[in-house]
Structures are given as structure tokens and as C-alpha cells.
């Protein structure tokens, strides 16, 4: 059973992982790539444990490799200020 249902807008784009992520209770991150979303995948898995979440998104936003989902990208990809 899915640990949680999470809307894509609540996930963060992680440049390093090239995946949308969401915190996993084990401390790692649930992950799903744009390619997986384009294929209609709705399960985001954690690489460190057995848990997974169901991602809620509009398939059309990711269809045909179009970047219509840009407006959905959360602010999670900012540089860390060294100050």
C-alpha cells in the first residue's frame, strides 16, 4: 500500500537527481523522473527502503516531452547562499 498520496506541485525538482522528490520517513527521498511521468508512472520510490508514494498529477502536463509543467516547478532548486 502506498505510504501517501502527494500532488506533483508538492514535490521538489532536484537537479542533481534529475527527479521530482518528496521526503521519505526513512530520511531519504521518494523520487520520480520526468520520463517516468511522461510514461504515465504514478509511483515514486525511495531508493533506501520499501516505501513508495502515489504521485497525483495531470498526465497532459508531461505528455510529448513538452515543458508545460514549468509552471509547476516548485522553488526547491535554489542555490544555497554562503553568507
Amino acid at each position: 500500500m502506498s505510504y501517501d498520496d502527494v500532488e506533483i506541485e508538492d514535490m521538489e525538482w532536484n537537479e542533481e537527481l534529475q527527479a521530482y522528490t518528496y521526503p521519505c520517513p526513512c530520511g531519504d527521498l521518494f523520487q520520480i523522473t520526468k520520463d517516468e511521468l511522461r510514461l504515465g508512472e504514478e509511483i515514486a520510490r525511495c531508493p533506501s527502503c520499501s516505501l513508495y508514494i502515489t504521485v497525483i498529477y495531470n498526465a497532459e502536463d508531461f505528455a510529448d516531452g513538452s515543458d508545460k509543467n514549468k509552471s509547476l516547478q516548485p522553488s526547491g532548486n535554489q542555490a544555497v547562499a554562503v553568507a
Binding site: 521538489e12 516548485p74 522553488s75 526547491g76 535554489q78 544555497v80 547562499a81
Partner: peptide
């Protein structure tokens, strides 16, 4: 990223 530092922006430190 979510304003959780309370500095009036979405910067990380």
C-alpha cells in the same frame, strides 16, 4: 525553499 527560515525570501543558508 518554502520560507521556513523566516527571512522574507526563499533562499537557503
Amino acid at each position: 525553499s518554502f520560507g521556513q527560515l523566516g527571512h522574507g525570501d526563499f533562499s537557503s543558508h
